[in-house]
Write a protein that binds this DNA or RNA. Structure first.
Lengths: 225, 225
DNA sequence: CCCAGAGTTAATAATAACTTAATATTTAGT
DNA sequence: ACTAAATATTAAGTTATTATTAACTCTGGG
């Protein structure tokens, strides 16, 4: 299977809808997974880390809306594209979906053409470009393998630490405001105190051993050298 | 998501209006965030630093007018475009909005076309070109990296020093009154003595090494060369 | 169940930024 | 050249921001 294939998770309690979606999306080259209720969706989403989730509003265990809210409250899913599926294509549920963080919705019945077009459009519009390997002299950061190498020694960072370092390092010299950092790394729904950033910065400095993050007091942090 | 997408924050207590705006503005390529009451608006505005805020007049917690006033009293939002939304399209609330620092207003009900046209127009009319790199011969000022380079040597200034230098340098030759400087750099609520400016000027001159700030006695300062 | 690691918070310490006040120097007007 | 007013300079005092540490929660794996 293509290494860069987009992963799509389909969540619907009706087997024939799952099959229909799976068929059409596989044909488009997506890597498709399915779930049949809210809880299973959450489990699989966590394991698979899909790029897009097709979420039926009406599902057993947890409704699509609930699942959507739960996913959006976790920073791991802040960039996951969520497409709601609803039989009720009245404004009410449409609204409810988008309000809770969905990126788009489609009303049943679904035409294969509309579905595929919409999903492709979502990817075009929303997906972040895949992060690439960063290399500065004596330090390299690989987001694929999740590894940082400093002077030929491998350093393992925790996820938040890594994301923070990557954010700063992908634009060396540029100052990132604390707000920007919170938005990019934690997402704008999550609320954490300012000291949290400091603590992560400290751990990064500590683990890397070399001083490559500069504090700009009253402003933010930047990566240098 | 486009890295340079304009950020728009929508503040309205009615879910269907939020959704309506979100849908239409997302489709235009804006990066859209929402808030459902006054307090949430202030929180998110601070966090997200949107380029434009669509502000409903009638909201719980704090009204749009209050939010507008509060935002405008903070220097971080002096360039944020504010568009008021009101069901009462009588002159009274229109005036009240503009009086309190809003840049435009739209009366409900809203047509998507009008909305998008108006917002695009506001951006065209009001948005400042991104604070950019200033380059004069032998000196360059980079607000993104928060660094000044003088004859290929990097000089790091503290926040107030930098803001002051940037203010003067972005209009070389133009004299800035002490009052203007206080307003722009310190904001109009903060009260500091006149000597404070002198001290910062001195530090800048000292750090840069070259004399590029001229005193205009009895008037103010200007950047030259 | 317990442990280990990640993530967060809160309290305190440390430090840099900022402001002020006191004194010296410069400038412009007479 | 004298004077008054404005600015320059310096050092010291204050405040704001960040660094550091340790404790606490939460989660998943053994």
């Amino acid at each position: 299977m293509d290494q860069t294939a987009r992963k799509v998770l389909i969540a619907d309690d009706e087997p024939d809808i799952r099959e229909f979606l799976q068929y059409n999306l596989s044909a488009e080259g997506y890597e498709v997974y399915t779930a049949k209720d809210g809880d299973e969706t959450l489990d699989k989403a966590k394991r698979i880390q899909p790029d897009l989730i097709v979420l039926d509003v009406m599902m057993p265990k947890k409704s699509g809306v609930e699942v959507c809210q739960l996913l959006r409250s976790q920073s791991a899913f802040k960039d996951t594209i969520i497409l709601m599926l609803t039989a009720l294509n009245d404004d009410g549920s449409h609204i409810k979906g988008l309000e809770n963080g969905a990126d788009d919705y489609i009303g049943k019945p679904i035409s294969p053409k509309v579905l595929v077009t919409r999903i492709n459009a979502l990817f075009r519009r929303l997906s972040k470009p895949k992060a690439g390997l960063l290399t500065m002299d004596s330090i390299s950061i690989d987001p694929e393998k999740f590894v940082v190498r400093v002077e030929d020694k491998e350093v393992s960072l925790a996820k938040k630490e890594f994301e923070l370092l990557y954010l700063l390092a992908h634009r060396p010299g540029r100052v990132f405001l604390r707000n920007e950092i919170l938005n990019q790394v934690w997402g704008n729904e999550v609320i954490v105190g300012d000291r949290t950033i400091d603590v992560h910065i400290r751990k990064i400095r500590q683990k890397l051993g070399i001083d490559c993050i500069t504090t700009v007091k009253g402003v933010g942090y930047k990566f240098e050298r």
